[in-house]
Amino acid sequence: MKNTLVAPLSEFPTVKQRSSRKISTETLDDFSQLTETCRSLSEGNELKTAERVLWSYLPQIEALAQVQSPHQKSAAAITSQAYVLAASLVGHHNDLQSRQSYSERAIWYAECAQNVELQVAALRQLAVTFDYLALPQNVLQTYQRALPLLKDVSPRLQACIYSALSGVYAQLQQEQEAHHFMGIAYEKYPGDRQNEPGYLRTINASYHTLILWDGLNHLELGQPLKAHKILQEIPTLEPTEQIPERIRVELLNYQAKALAAVRDLEQACAYIKTAVEASTVIGSRKRFQEAFTVFQQMKEVWPTEARIYDLGNLFLQRMINLVD
């Protein structure tokens, strides 16, 4: 895998420019609304629908973003947001190469739009991709690339980056740095936790993210009791409007991992069972695989427990439903 953090434009497939199409404010508003609709669909149980709608118009707005006009920057900003969302959606199919490519496109169009906030959001999406690829040094480099830009972005996005950066240092067993950046994240996060911009919801720049990273840091640093206590602050066993469903399933998996670490068999099984069923409903192979990875860890802790055997059967039953 290449070490470049952002692919040059020459590596991107050319989109046929539709310069004959008149670009108007109304046209851009339509594409912006479509992107918001896809985002809303992706936050519920409609990942496949969101993908179909997104790809029905993304090539068109991308073409407009490549045509010189007074509206080019606006078109580039919408295209960047669309690719941030595309990266998230394709990630649920475990297609991490496409996830990386779409994240890089999102960065490039954000730069074309001269929108620093979108650049940082897209860099966050790329860093998450490298995390899924188990490339912690690439993750660290990507967040370090974002650091000089943070002075020009919202406190909410700053907190998201600082908390994620703390997580990288925890993975690298650099405890002091992990606690340092986690502290900055809590300081930066605004008191008003409502009205998040759409693209920040896509990259999960929410207060729950801070709690998640805080808990995971303690888990990485060999402090499972602290991790469990922190992660239990997030209610996840039932769906909630405050947390997109794809994020809720991710949280369930991490909470189950912490519960297994503190040897709470009953609760660990309950959380994994909920995660398996929810990942099947939304059609996320990625979340299903994450749940299975935690289940494998649970089998090592409780190899002869009947509940573990029952969970294994549940995975077999639900696997058949995860078809594209």
Rank of each mutant, 00 (worst) to 15 (best):
T4V: 14
L5K: 09
V6H: 01
T14S: 14
Q17H: 04
K22I: 15
T25L: 15
E26W: 00
D30R: 14
D30I: 13
D30H: 12
S32D: 12
E36T: 09
E36K: 12
S40C: 06
S42H: 00
L47T: 07
E51W: 07
R52K: 14
L58G: 04
A75N: 04
A75V: 08
I78E: 04
T79Y: 05
A82Q: 02
V90M: 00
S98C: 10
E104P: 00
A106V: 09
E111F: 00
E111P: 00
R124G: 01
L126R: 15
D131W: 07
Y132W: 10
L133I: 04
A134Y: 11
Q144T: 03
Y162S: 07
Q171A: 05
L172Y: 06
L172N: 10
Q174C: 09
Q176F: 09
A178Q: 11
H180D: 04
A185C: 04
P197T: 09
G198E: 05
Y199C: 00
S206D: 06
Y207K: 08
I211N: 04
D214W: 08
N217K: 00
T236H: 01
Q242F: 06
I247K: 10
R248D: 08
A260E: 11
V262A: 07
R263H: 11
A278D: 13
V281E: 14
R285P: 02
R287M: 12
A291Y: 04
Q296F: 01
D310W: 00
G312E: 03
G312C: 05
L314A: 02
L316R: 12
Q317E: 15
I320A: 05
